[in-house]
C-alpha cells in the first residue's frame, strides 16, 4: 500500500478528474458504441468497460494527463481508441467462441470432436463458460464478478491471463 505524499496527492487529483469527467466519457462511449450497433444493457456494460479502461490508461500516464491543458480532450482521445480496441477484441473473441460452440453442438463429426479435444486441452469447461458469458452472452465484468464472488480486479486478471494463454495455444482454422 502506497503511503507517500506524492502518491496520495496524485490519487486525490486523479479522483477529482475521474468524478468530473466520468459522466461525459460514459456518454461519449455509449454514443460511439450505439453507432456501432450495441444496444440495451450490453451497451451500458461495454461503455463502462471502455471508460474504465480509459481511466486505467490515464492513471498509468497521469503525469501526461495532469500536464495536459485540456484533460477532457486528452481523455476523449484515449476513450476513442479504447472503444475501438474493445470492439475489435469482442469481435475477435466472439468469432472464436462462436466457432467453437457451433462445432461442439454438431456432435459426432470428426471436426467437432477434434475441436472439442483441442479446446479442452487449452480451456477447462469453466474457463470456456467464463469467456462465453463475457463475449457471447453479454455479461459485464461487474455482473460476472458478482456471480463468481470475485473482485473485479481478480476477475480482470484471470480473464487477461486466460486470453493470453488461448492466443498462444489456439490454432486458428484458415
Amino acid at each position: 500500500m502506497k503511503t507517500n505524499d506524492h502518491y496520495n496527492r496524485d490519487t486525490e487529483r486523479f479522483e477529482q478528474l475521474y468524478r468530473e469527467h466520468f459522466p461525459a466519457l460514459l456518454r461519449f462511449a455509449m454514443a460511439r458504441l450505439r453507432a456501432r450497433g450495441s444496444t440495451g444493457t450490453h451497451l451500458q456494460g461495454q461503455a463502462e468497460e471502455a471508460v474504465q479502461e480509459t481511466f486505467s490508461f490515464a492513471w498509468v500516464n497521469r503525469g501526461t494527463l495532469f500536464a495536459s491543458p485540456a484533460p477532457l480532450g486528452w481523455l476523449i482521445n484515449v476513450c476513442h481508441y479504447k472503444v475501438l480496441e474493445l470492439l475489435r477484441e469482442e469481435h475477435m473473441w466472439s468469432k472464436r467462441l462462436l466457432r467453437v460452440s457451433e462445432r461442439i453442438t454438431e456432435g459426432g463429426s470428426d471436426g467437432g470432436l477434434r475441436l472439442r479435444a483441442e479446446m479442452r486441452s487449452i480451456l477447462s469447461e469453466e474457463e470456456y463458460t467464463l469467456l462465453k458469458k463475457l463475449y457471447l452472452d453479454g455479461y459485464t465484468y461487474r455482473e460476472l464478478s458478482q456471480e463468481m464472488g470475485l473482485k473485479q480486479s481478480a476477475l480482470a486478471m484471470r480473464i487477461k491471463r486466460l486470453k493470453e494463454r488461448v492466443s498462444r495455444e489456439w490454432k486458428e482454422e484458415k
Binding site: F22, Q52, F55, S56, W59, K151, A156
Partner: peptide
C-alpha cells in the same frame, strides 16, 4: 459515479 470510482479503485489501483 461513486460506484464507478469504487470499481475503478478495485480494478486498477489494487
Amino acid at each position: 459515479v461513486d460506484a464507478a470510482w469504487e470499481d475503478f479503485k478495485e480494478r486498477c489501483m489494487e
